[in-house]
Design a protein around this nucleic acid. Structure first.
Lengths: 155, 155
DNA sequence: CGGGGGAGGTTCGTCAAGTGAACCCAGCGT
DNA sequence: ACGCTGGGTTCACTTGACGAACCTCCCCCG
């Protein structure tokens, strides 16, 4: 098991999960990608308890994934909305990955509830593993994982 | 907000998170992709409480993401190991997506702790959004989400 | 100026989930 | 017969999620 021995404590998967892995966080982001920006709308769509939602939004703002933007609709008092930052937008593939797997294995009626299309050409979009040579890989089997940690063992 | 109104209750993101979104589940899978197969090794690598680990492994087996395979090392009694099924292998992009984001935004020293390379050609592998026309998209902004639900509103 | 109402929270009691340590059982080696 | 190891289970405790109630700010209506 060559790969079974490197320092897991600073693994990026664990790190990312520490940031967005709590309950509701990724669902909040899903809503954000769907255009939701206001507290009440998040709450309506998700049905999450307000206290939890407050906490999650706060954490995501702290982490620089969302930012609070004040705005004022005419005839209303000033409010603020939550918008994705660049850092937040980069979580899109994560959500797409979750969605794609769910579409494949959980779709009750075989029809995914949401489909993604290329804004320019209109054809369906999917997430794929590609290498820098341009080859499209078929899955985990085509990948070789190389630890870069403060290596050991052989010395 | 055109996309803000479809039936979220059967969203694939939520569905997938219901299956693998609990604490430790995705980390268990990370280990599985790194070749870990035995209970004690999962426990050692993750440091998760045994009770939780038992539960997560059980759930993942129930869900058909892992399967228990009996095996016998020589001079030892029969044991079983946990192996990824095809359904489990298909979660690879999800983990890669989490990893890629963490590599970009959380790597303390700028060096990701693990890099992936194409087994055939050796060049680095990354996850990308592509459309069926072959265009590589740059991010969420290039995607248009189309709900397929039992549509409403206009009637 | 007084009151209603909605956005955006906070507080509280309850209940589920995660945590770590201790314990248990089956089988192999001696 | 006895202990060691893998693979768990049980238990007491702490943390987190939940839902309902409440609170505040400020715009609008009267």
């Amino acid at each position: 098991m060559s790969n079974a021995s490197w320092d897991r404590s600073r693994c990026s998967v664990a790190g990312t999960l520490a940031v967005v892995g709590e309950k509701w966080s990724l669902l909040v982001l899903r809503e954000a990608f769907l255009g939701v920006r206001r507290f009440a709308d998040f709450q309506r769509q998700l049905g999450a308890p307000k206290a939890v939602l407050t906490d999650r939004l706060g954490t995501l703002v702290e982490q620089g994934i969302l930012r609070r933007v004040p705005y004022q609709a005419e005839g209303e008092r000033q409010r603020h909305e939550y918008r994705l930052t660049a850092k937040g937008l980069d979580l899109y593939p994560t959500l797409v990955a979750l969605m794609q797997w769910g579409d494949r294995y959980l779709a009750d009626d075989g029809v995914p509830p949401l489909s993604l299309e290329h804004r320019d050409c209109g054809s369906p979009v999917h997430l794929g593993l590609v290498c820098d040579e341009g080859h499209e890989l078929t899955g985990a089997r085509d990948v070789h994982a190389v630890p870069r940690s403060t290596a050991v063992t052989s010395g």
